[in-house]
């Protein structure tokens, strides 16, 4: 039970801190923000990697492998495309 309270507490605290930080982000950057948070949500890759920390059956290996591949696609693609987008946002040079 204490485990549940701890995990719920961690979730709520992170949510609140995230909310406070993110609500200050200007609409200008909403698409890159969404793209970056998208990449962050691929944190499930950690879970996927942990699945390989003990001997696995064939079906499990396939499923866990697919999870890691999908998450890797998401994390690399997400950060790469966010970076590409952000590189296009340029400040006006002072002439």
């Amino acid at each position: 039970m204490s485990n549940l309270i701890l995990m719920a507490g961690v979730f709520v605290a992170s949510f609140v801190i995230g909310y406070l930080l993110i609500s200050k982000i200007p609409p200008l950057l909403h698409t890159p923000l969404m793209s970056m948070t998208n990449a962050i949500s691929a944190v499930t890759i950690l879970g996927g990697l942990m699945l390989f920390s003990q001997p696995t059956g064939f079906v499990e290996k396939i499923l866990a492998g697919a999870a890691v591949a999908a998450a890797a696609f998401n994390v690399v693609g997400g950060f790469a495309i966010t970076d590409r987008m952000l590189r296009m946002f340029k400040a006006k040079e002072q002439k």
Partner: peptide, 8 residues
């Protein structure tokens, strides 16, 4: 990480 994304 998930909570931050959910907040966003």
């Amino acid at each position: 990480f998930g909570a931050v994304v959910a907040a966003s």
